[in-house]
Computed example of a mutant assay.
Amino acid sequence: MASDTPAGKRVLISGASVAGPALAYWLNRYGFHVTVVERAPGLRPGGQAIDVRGTAIEAAARMGVLDELREHATDLRGMSVLDADGNETYSTTEATASGGRLDRDDVEILRDDLARILVGAGGSGVEYLFDDSIAALDERPEEIRVRFAGGRERAFDIVVGADGVHSHTRSLVFGPEERHLRPLAGHLGVWTAPNVLDLDRWQLAYLTGDPDASGCLAMSVRKNAELRVYVGLGGVDRTDRELRDPQAQKRLIAERYAHVGWEMPRLLEYMWEAPDFHFDGGAQVHLDAWSSGRVVLLGDAGYCGSPSSGQGTSMALVGAYVLAGELKAADGDHRAAFTAYERELRDWVTANQALAHRSAGSGEYGTAQEAAEAPKDASEVLNLSDDYYAVTDGFALRDY
């Protein structure tokens, strides 16, 4: 800790994906001493394409990173829907399943690219501790002492849990995740593959009609050099402890998709060695309060909307802006800042979480039946109504 750090302004952030680095940027700018701890040995590779839309576009612009985000956008031209035999049933250049309407200023970007840009924006003023995590927290009247898994101990004024839907920080302070996690239907597997489908800034939605192996979304990324491959699974036993092992997760996907045709056998081959493979079930996080004492939650750790809301990244970026701004406005008084942060954001977060339930099928992407029936326009198949964007755009950033 810098010896001249003002009282109340020593902040530890757990998590170096999106919410954590975004908050670190703002707090460093406002004169706080910021440390970010991340259990991975470095910035995590891979991950799905994510969306910066609506109010979050303004937050990115205020950070000065919007142009760089656009340089690394997926820049898709459109999508096609394929039936179980691999035949195209629908095509559009109006929208994509993963990014929404293409006539908006929203940015779809790979999660690892966004994380790298946000960390870079924070500069050398932010301290990063990789390959470590919080092991224990001991809150005292004037500070909170942190024992790290690596053995060191340090004191901070504030601890922020920005470590995702399965937040360890949240479990230390608010109890087991079962109290706060609300499962949604379906599991999703994601990995990177070479562009063996020769897609040109395009996305394919392959629908099997099987609820237990519902289909695949494949999209070209990084100037068509790679594919991001997504597969959906239903009927997965969330209590199966074996499925915490990535190899067991891959075996489950392979078993479920063994009967599927089209290009799935070839895409599954790349799953086995993919260094960025990820698998998880749909879920939301709901808490009565986002803070307790000197600990506060940000982004998915506090109010995950699930991928089907399409708003997890945007809520993280906007949440980071508001939390940092309220800490600045309160001059480090965490009680006042945390109260104002939640008061400012709670209604908008609740509205965003409700977006995940707007379709009886798979959220933003509509149902397989809707897609197979070749709708009249992209909004019908993707369920991208004006009401959806009224929520994503419906929060005004204050000046701090």
Rank of each mutant, 00 (worst) to 15 (best):
Met79Gln: 14
Ser91Met: 06
Pro375Ala: 08
Ile253Pro: 07
Trp272Asp: 14
Gly282Glu: 15
Lys376Phe: 03
Ala360Ile: 03
Ser308Met: 15
Ala396Val: 12
Ala61Met: 04
Pro211Trp: 02
Gln369Tyr: 09
Trp191Ser: 07
Pro211Phe: 12
His357Met: 06
Lys250Arg: 14
Ala193Thr: 14
Leu268Asp: 05
Glu380Cys: 00
Thr239Tyr: 12
Arg44Lys: 07
Gly42Gln: 14
Ala248Glu: 15
Val146Met: 01
Ala218Tyr: 01
Tyr389Gln: 07
Ser362Cys: 01
Glu68Lys: 13
Leu355Asn: 07
Gly20Phe: 02
Tyr388Ser: 00
Met271Trp: 03
Asp280Ser: 12
Ala205Ile: 05
Ser214Met: 10
His180Ile: 01
Ala283Arg: 02
Ala336Pro: 00
Asp399Met: 00
Met79Asn: 09
Phe279Asn: 06
Pro183Ser: 06
Phe156Asn: 11
Gln369Ile: 08
Leu268Trp: 12
Ile158Leu: 10
Pro141Leu: 02
Tyr230Met: 11
Ile144Tyr: 07
Arg358Cys: 00
Gly302Glu: 05
His168Leu: 01
Val173Met: 02
Ser17Asn: 12
Gly310His: 09
Arg241Asn: 13
Asp103Phe: 05
Gly125Gln: 00
Arg101Asn: 03
Thr92Pro: 10
Lys223Thr: 15
Asp387Glu: 10
Ile117Gly: 06
Ala378Arg: 06
Asp331Ala: 04
Arg147Ile: 00
Lys328Val: 03
Leu323Lys: 04
Ala368His: 05
His286Cys: 03
Arg170Leu: 10
Gly64Leu: 07
Val236Arg: 01
Leu204Asn: 02
Asp83His: 13
Tyr400Gly: 00
Asp280Pro: 02
Leu207Asn: 13
Arg182Trp: 00
Asp105His: 12
Ala330Arg: 08
Ala320Ile: 07
Gly120Glu: 04
Arg116Ala: 15
Val190Asn: 10
Gln249Thr: 11
Ile134Asp: 06
Glu143His: 13
Gly150Cys: 07
Ser379Asp: 13
Ser214Leu: 02
Asp347Phe: 01
Ser167Cys: 14
Leu384Tyr: 08
Gly100Pro: 03
Ala59Arg: 09
Ser214Thr: 09
Ala193His: 13
Arg398Ile: 02
Gly151Tyr: 05
Trp290Ser: 04
Thr74Trp: 08
Met219Ala: 10
Glu142Leu: 09
Asp75Val: 00
Thr55Asn: 04
Phe279Gln: 14
Asp237Ile: 05
Glu263Val: 05
Cys216Gln: 05
Thr5Pro: 05
Asp210Glu: 00
Glu153Ala: 11
Asp386Gln: 10
Ala329Asp: 11
Pro275Lys: 01
Cys304Thr: 08
Thr313Asp: 06
Leu204Ser: 10
Glu269Gln: 14
Asp103Thr: 09
Tyr400Glu: 08
Leu287Val: 11
Ala356Met: 10
Gly234Ser: 09
Arg39Asn: 06
Asp103Pro: 09
Gly366Cys: 13
Arg256Phe: 04
His259Leu: 07
Trp290Tyr: 15
Arg29Gly: 02
Leu110Val: 10
Arg70Leu: 11
Glu226His: 07
Ala24Glu: 12
Arg228Glu: 15
Phe156Ala: 03
Gly299Phe: 02
Arg29Lys: 15
Ala330His: 10
Ala218Pro: 05
Asp386Ala: 11
Gly15Ile: 12
Pro21Arg: 04
Tyr400Phe: 15
Ala283Gln: 11
Arg251Cys: 06
Arg182Val: 10
Trp26Asn: 14
Val18Pro: 08
Gly281His: 12
